[in-house]
Design a protein around this nucleic acid. Structure first.
Lengths: 249, 249
DNA sequence: GAGTGGTCTAGACCACTCC
DNA sequence: GAGTGGTCTAGACCACTCT
């Protein structure tokens, strides 16, 4: 009599909550009813109400805080202008490539890994030889207290060891400007975009649950000779970003 | 004594299965043990084994077939060369823009929607006026019997009504070549890439479960005057694609 | 301490496929 | 008909937050 055709109960409950969120009854940051009130309200078992809440969590609409409740997500996506940010004029002018993204308080945690053995596919692209010896640097980007992007940049060790590229601070224009100083200006880029489940480590560093997918971007930078001089492997909170690519026909 | 530190049981079972898949013990298309054998093997409740299998499903590593079992996914991602496929030389030569993607048996189901009211954000970009009157066409792309991409293309109704663009078959070079014939050649494109939970309809048309995220691409085509002449809203099976963007610094 | 989400158990019915 | 995945129930313990 409670009226059930085909759509499972937990989906109908999720639908109802989603509608309320869309209608603004629950605004960004608001707390949703917990599983017990929900279950009572809809006359189902607690597990079923929980399934509904988890469905919304997996959609990225709400986030769970242990011991506290489910809260409506309140993060405005970052618009990443993937091509403009890498234009020569941009880093050539001394701007960091991050400043082509949304203007928002941005914290970057950077650390040098120094000489590392690059993962096999990257070693091949960079033509690192048998040792696979690369120079690597990792970064974590935090916007509004939320870690949103992890990045690991690999360059041929021989190319950059002992140069300003291998310093902690790469100076105005960043790595690409320093590579240009060395006569290895990047002239071409390729970005490969994939969606995947995060590794346990990535999930932890981005503070995501294991069910939330991430965007993987692998960017390769080429110098004029056609040689690959850098590979940057990035992991993005998939709900925190909109990727924008502008190009001519 | 069975050795449990912190990682939940269901995750450890999922990890074990993932390792076996990576090791090739279960190859593409193979069937995994069901929840009951799995539960017995690991000494847990059936629900817990099921949780492990569902975790793998959400990762996209395996797919569930109702009444049959869980099977290792066996689809090789499609490499979509987003920029090359839209170059003027490409469609100018009479090739369809799909042929810049992986060479694989591709089926396209196309249908004209005719005159439709475009969604508000698209109507604004296309400057459709109050009526929001657009001409629309939808397509579904199927590769190896798997629907992988949905597309809906919107153009200003006044621009294309009664022209070859509005025909069922757009001819060599497709819509963009016909727009060029009309003196509205696209010279610039913008693609916006997002990851989201699919609508119920999109999930059904792509044969995805509601937990599997999709990639949303919104592509806007601009003519030389800077006017937007087409908006194409695409929904991709996020595990079926690798997006590739090539560009110069 | 009360409430919460994360995990887990031990059952159940249904619709589906055929291992 | 046996087995399967999808859904559902009615409990439970733990770690966590503090509504």
């Amino acid at each position: 009599m409670t009226g059930g055709q085909k759509r499972p109960k937990y989906r109908r409950i999720a639908d109802a909550l989603r509608a309320q969120i869309d209608a603004g009854e629950y605004g960004p940051g608001d707390r949703l009813p917990g599983e017990n009130p929900l279950a009572a309200e809809h006359g189902v078992a607690a597990m079923t109400a929980r399934q509904a809440l988890n469905a919304l969590k997996n959609e990225g609409l709400v986030e769970a805080r242990k011991g506290a409740g489910f809260y409506v997500r309140s993060f405005k996506p970052i618009r990443r202008r993937s091509i403009a940010r890498l234009s020569r004029e941009h880093w050539g002018s001394g701007a960091t490539i991050f400043s082509a993204d949304d203007a928002r308080e941005l914290t970057v945690e950077a650390s040098l890994l120094g000489e590392v053995t690059a993962p096999e596919p990257i070693a091949r692209v960079l033509d690192l030889g048998e040792a696979g010896s690369s120079f690597a640097r990792t970064r974590r980007f935090i916007v509004e207290d939320r870690p949103v992007l992890l990045s690991t940049s690999y360059m041929p060790y021989d190319l950059v060891a002992g140069t300003p590229v291998a310093e902690v601070e790469t100076g105005p224009g960043g790595t690409y400007a320093r590579l240009a100083d060395l006569g290895h200006a990047p002239v071409h880029f390729r970005e490969e975009v994939r969606v995947r489940a995060p590794s346990a480590e990535d999930a932890a560093r981005l503070r995501l649950s294991a069910d939330t997918p991430v965007i993987k971007i692998v960017r390769t930078a080429y110098e004029a000779t056609g040689r690959a001089i850098e590979v940057n492997e990035m992991t993005l909170d998939s709900l925190a970003y909109v990727l924008e690519y502008d190009f001519d026909a």
